[in-house]
Amino acid sequence: MKTILLSIAVLCCSLLLISATPDAYAPGSKATDFKLKNVDGKMVSLADYKDAQGFIVTFTCNHCPFSKAYEDRIIGLHNKYAAKGYPVVAINSNDKTIAPEDSYEGMIERAKEKKFPFVYLYDESQEIAKTYGATRTPHMYILKKEGKDLVVKYVGAIDDNSDDPSMVTKKYLENAMDEILAGKEVSTSSTKAIGCTIKWKGTK
């Protein structure tokens, strides 16, 4: 009897552990909206973009060499796809005590320096990065409006060469974006990339 009770207890505990692990967004997931502070001091939600058909959401930051290497390409993505209904929404979720450069003030400075044409939002509580399941910077998500939902269509990398844009052979995100705009299914909807870890509070 004791063993049965014990195994039930163990089973319950392990089920609890499994359910406590939040699921990272994958293609097909319904994404949550948020209300985060932009570098201009205003609060921004995806719902504010009435005319958008979707979004290119990027979890990025100021200090990470990969984020820096991709800044100009992210600006290029916004310039290419915002007019087609998919603006870039950049989010920094890093803890400033671990990465001081990634403070809100640092974001304002970086956005000015690079003349970001898109919003750059501060996820100070890190709730949005956790909900989306972002782990590294830059970590990209394409969201598409379907009725009242925001459906994840693509998760992952921008392309296949972070260091040298001239050596890129696979534009993973642009391919996905072009398929979405053409009304097609996204053929490669999930990719991986090396990146800096998101600096979680209390990990150091």
Binding site: T135, R136, D160, S162, D163, T169, A193, G195
Partner: peptide, 20 residues
């Protein structure tokens, strides 16, 4: 090997690509 997506899963399927 700059096309990270081509090999990350071969190291481990659960790896998101963040280092260390």
């Amino acid at each position: 090997e700059p096309d990270y997506n081509s090999w990350i899963d071969k190291v481990d399927a659960t790896w998101s690509g963040a280092i260390p």
